[in-house]
Write a protein that binds this DNA or RNA. Structure first.
Lengths: 145, 145
DNA sequence: CAAAATTCATTAGTATACAAATAGATTTTG
DNA sequence: CAAAATCTATTTGTATACTAATGAATTTTG
């Protein structure tokens, strides 16, 4: 009876043990590491720039899809990168709907200068794990995408 | 020489393999699952309510600390929960700086009604993993908080 | 005890994130 | 080919998240 009552109020639901909560905390820690190592770009800005350097160029929405950002989000990210002269946009002549985006020389240079820190961000994020654990973790996390 | 040039431009940095990017994608997937199962609360609102039901009551900042939200964030979350009558706030008589927060009867009832779905959210998030993998994953993820 | 340091809550500003609606351009289809 | 469907980018609105600054209250310290 008292067990039933306790469950009605508390239900044995421990927030700190839920995967969503721990996922959020791990993300926060990672974002903190990122901000301390690459203060001039946010993780999403860096992702857009990195993917752009990887692809060469892409339409705005296509870039959003490749970096897991919806149309509204990628628009803001590209606007801010363009304002800083790190990317340039042109209307696609073949398809008037598309906005063609590419990294500028300054954007490519900034990306190149950040890559080393980006690798350290990955290392530092995974630092609490052994080499074996890192591989296992990345393998399991990848399944949850 | 061509190898050096390629590295200068591309640097072998594959965004999709970085832990931060995969972490963000896994979070996005989890948030989608959450929204589909508990549309009446955001994950942070649910976290605040759950922690409040777990603790009984707390000051606003204390609740923020317990749910990994900074002062500015928890303020917004509590404001929105209060507007909907799910929590109530009172000035702490013993410490005039503190704002005492507790769940209302409606808040406790909503939490109780959501707990079952919350468990399913955890299950669905981890569904791509076997039982063994889930334990391993949670153990490793917890180290990265 | 008084000054200094800390804590608490609030505010303003910036940056994701996503839903929903819109308008124009392109593709698909009947 | 014309209508329907889809795609692209934009806009609006809401909700985290964090930084930095502020003022009021409390605690610590010399």
């Amino acid at each position: 009876m008292s067990d039933t009552q306790q469950n009605t109020l508390q239900q044995d639901y421990i927030l700190d043990e839920q995967v969503g909560f721990i996922l959020r905390r791990a993300s926060q820690r990672h974002l903190g590491i990122f901000a301390s190592r690459i203060p001039e770009l946010t993780p999403t800005q860096f992702a857009a720039l990195a993917k752009l350097c990887e692809l060469g160029a892409a339409s705005q929405n296509e870039l959003g899809r490749r970096t897991a950002m919806d149309a509204a989000t990628i628009k803001g990210v590209i606007d801010r990168l363009r304002r800083r002269g790190l990317v340039a946009t042109v209307k696609d002549a073949n398809d008037q709907r598309r906005l063609f985006v590419k990294a500028t020389a300054a954007g490519e240079e900034l990306f190149a200068n950040c890559v080393e820190q980006a690798r350290k961000i990955t290392d530092e994020t995974l630092a609490p794990l052994s080499e074996k654990e890192r591989l296992m973790f990345l393998q399991l996390l990848s399944k949850l995408q």
